[in-house]
Amino acid sequence: MPDGTPHRLPPMGEAFALPPAARKGRGAGLNPAIRFEASSREAFDDGWGTLEAAFADLPPLPTTLTPDKSKSALAWNESPDIGFDRAVNPYRGCEHGCVYCYARPSHAYLGLSPGLDFETRLIFKPDVAALLEKELRKPGYDPRPIALGSNTDPYQPVERTLKLTRAVLEVLDRFNHPVTIVTKSAGVLRDLDILAPMAKRNLARVCLSITTLDPRLARIMEPRAASPERRLAAVRDLAAAGVPAAVLAAPMIPGVNDAELETILERAAAAGASHAGYVLLRLPLEIKQLFEDWLARHMPDRAARVLSLIRQTRGGALYDSRFGVRQKGTGAYADLLAQRFAVAARRLNLERRGGGVGNLDCTQFRVPDAAGKAPQTAQLALF
Rank of each mutant, 00 (worst) to 15 (best):
P2F: 00
P2W: 01
T5W: 00
P6I: 08
H7Q: 10
G13M: 13
A22Y: 03
R35L: 12
R35Y: 00
E37N: 14
S39P: 00
E42R: 14
D46Y: 06
G49P: 06
T50S: 13
F55K: 04
T64F: 12
P67W: 03
D68R: 14
K69D: 15
N77W: 04
N77E: 06
S79P: 01
P90D: 12
C98Y: 02
Y100Q: 03
C101S: 14
L116H: 01
E119T: 09
L122S: 04
D127I: 01
V128R: 04
L132Y: 00
K134W: 04
G140Q: 14
P145G: 09
I146K: 01
L148Y: 03
L148A: 02
D153M: 11
Y155I: 09
R160M: 03
L162F: 13
L172S: 06
H177E: 15
A196G: 07
A199H: 10
R205T: 15
C207H: 01
E222M: 08
E229Q: 12
E229F: 00
R231D: 08
A234P: 08
R236T: 12
P251R: 10
I253K: 07
V256L: 15
L265P: 02
E266N: 07
R267F: 12
A268C: 08
A270K: 15
A276H: 02
G277N: 11
P284A: 03
L290D: 09
D293G: 00
H298W: 08
S308L: 06
G315Y: 14
A317I: 01
D320S: 11
R326A: 12
Q327W: 06
G329A: 08
G329Y: 04
A338D: 11
F341I: 13
R346S: 09
L350C: 10
P368M: 12
P368A: 05
A374F: 05
P375R: 10
Q376S: 14
